[in-house]
Design a protein around this nucleic acid. Structure first.
Length: 102
DNA sequence: TACGTGACGGCGA
DNA sequence: GTCGCCGCCACGT
């Protein structure tokens, strides 16, 4: 049974170490999807309940959280990141400091 | 089958 | 470092 694209995406996200973040494009590339960064977002939206995938470590290439600032999802992601020591300022993260480099 | 959409990225200014 | 425009392609309707 070959892993689906979504399964590979989740596998890559699971490999992101705590305290670091990766961009959608980075995950897409590492999952062998090329430039399909958009598909990564969709795949994360399809995560089944009870999963252990650290979806909150995936953000935009610009360092911004992909949700509208102030939304519930935004606050959830921000608090999860800060718990790991990732500094979020104005809904933004310094990519040069926290970007995951395998 | 065809069209619109989207948790996005790269590039130039 | 920022901002705007266009490209990308799988998926739902």
């Amino acid at each position: 049974m070959e892993p689906t694209r979504e399964q590979r995406i989740w596998q890559v996200v699971l490999a992101i170490p705590p305290g670091h973040v990766a961009s959608y494009g980075q995950v897409a590339d590492m999952a062998g999807l090329g430039r399909q960064a958009r598909f990564v977002g969709k795949a994360l939206g399809k995560l089944p309940a009870g999963h252990s995938v650290p979806w909150f470590r995936v953000i935009r290439n610009t360092g911004q959280i992909a949700f509208p600032e102030g939304s519930e999802a935004f606050e959830r992601q921000r608090s999860l990141l800060e718990e790991e020591g990732v500094e979020v300022v104005n809904g933004r993260i310094s990519m040069s400091r926290f970007r995951w480099r395998p």
